[in-house]
């Protein structure tokens, strides 16, 4: 399966064309981290067998503390609820990760679902990134420590939110992507807004990979 046949939910904005290397000219920079693999993982945090099996299959200890994020290499595991996680991995690892999870969780009450078509991520950076979030979400960004992930509002939509690479990573649903991007750009414009080059936007991802 070639990435050339794929389109991210923000494809129509042709962000690559507008993108430049972030500098001090603007208060806010954003770029998409497109076409990652997303896996919904369900199971009971209180069942050690499940937690151990999932952790070993993912190569990351499954975060069981509420609102925390575990990361190892290019794999990110976000706690959603006591029985739900969102696994984000490079597309190239998607099939193998799903297979590993299904193998490890054989016979254990759980659910592993490929949801890769359903999400995308945006990395928000710059001096005013947190101001933009204050316009867009009701969550108190001061409480968003590194390693924490929360699901909250974004305008009249919703997002997962965590700190990444001296900025913030937003993970949200495909069908709302157009709205979220427009709403974010609108909030960012008064501070000066630039589309960040994909290389820079995904620097963190590459570094950790």
């Amino acid at each position: 399966m070639s990435k050339s046949l794929m389109q991210s939910p923000l494809h129509h904005f042709d962000l690559a064309k507008q993108a430049v290397k972030p500098d001090g000219r603007h208060g806010v920079w954003a770029g998409e981290l497109p076409l990652a693999g997303y896996i919904a993982l369900r199971g009971d945090s209180a069942t050690p067998a499940f937690v151990e099996a999932a952790s070993s299959a993912l190569g990351v200890p499954l975060p069981v503390t509420p609102c925390t994020l575990a990361q190892s290499g290019a794999v990110k595991v976000a706690w959603i609820s006591p029985d739900e996680w969102l696994v984000v991995c490079p597309r190239e690892k998607l099939g193998a990760t799903i297979a590993a999870l299904e193998r490890a969780l054989e016979g254990i009450r759980s659910q592993v679902v490929d949801n890769s078509g359903g999400y995308t991520q945006v990395l928000l950076t710059g001096a005013n990134a947190s101001d933009v979030l204050a316009h867009c979400t009701v969550y108190d960004i001061a409480h968003l420590d590194p390693g924490k992930v929360v699901g909250t509002t974004f305008g009249k939509s919703a997002t997962l939110l965590h700190r990444q690479d001296r900025g913030f990573c937003l993970i949200f649903r495909r069908s709302f992507a157009d709205y979220l991007w427009r709403f974010m750009v609108r909030a960012a414009t008064p501070y000066g807004f630039g589309v960040a080059l994909r290389e820079d936007a995904s620097a963190a991802e590459r570094e950790t990979a």
């Binding site: 509420p66 609102c67 006591p82 969550y139 929360v150 509002t153």
Partner: peptide, 11 residues
Amino acid sequence: PHCGEKREEEE
């Protein structure tokens, strides 16, 4: 009680 935080009603 699951997220362990006070959040705004909008959520």
